[in-house]
């Protein structure tokens, strides 16, 4: 019986921890509307169907990476027969997604994923800003 206070305190602490994500989101004013990335204007079709890109762009990029770095292949043929040079900065960013902050970053921030890509690969716009 003497432990009643401690038990209640423990339970309360547990509850606080359990609901911590909700409090955090409330205080950070995360909207329920979603990340709303801005697709590049004037472009209809990415290097693969949108549905695939939305769920699996990271797989495709990793595959590109391994093709270029480890197998020395540079050319990618999309499912609809177009050819692309496999390059994050020189193809993805330069040719379409120049507004990285409005596209890549929005979803990544929303999902709280930290991608290490930009530690090395340059976003042609923020390039000079990030590199002092």
């Amino acid at each position: 019986m003497r432990d009643r206070g401690i038990i209640w305190m423990g339970l309360a602490l547990f509850l606080v921890f359990l609901t911590l994500p909700a409090w955090h989101n409330l205080s950070a004013r995360v909207s329920a509307k979603g990340p709303q990335p801005v697709p590049p204007a004037g472009q209809k079709q990415c290097v693969a169907p949108v549905e695939y890109m939305r769920t699996s762009h990271m797989r495709l990029l990793l595959d590109w990476r391994d093709s270029v770095v480890r197998r020395g292949a540079q050319d990618y043929t999309s499912p609809d027969g177009r050819h692309f040079a496999m390059s994050l900065t020189n193809t993805c960013l330069r040719e379409c997604h120049s507004a990285k902050a409005d596209f890549c970053d929005r979803c990544h921030n929303y999902e709280a994923v930290a991608v290490p890509c930009w530690d090395c690969h340059m976003d042609s716009k923020t390039l000079l800003g990030s590199v002092k």
């Binding site: 900065t89 090395c120 690969h121 590199v131 002092k132």
Partner: peptide, 16 residues
Amino acid sequence: PRPYIHNPNPEFPTRT
């Protein structure tokens, strides 16, 4: 290395 790259070439990655 980035603070020491004074005139970066965007076509090639830097290292981390």
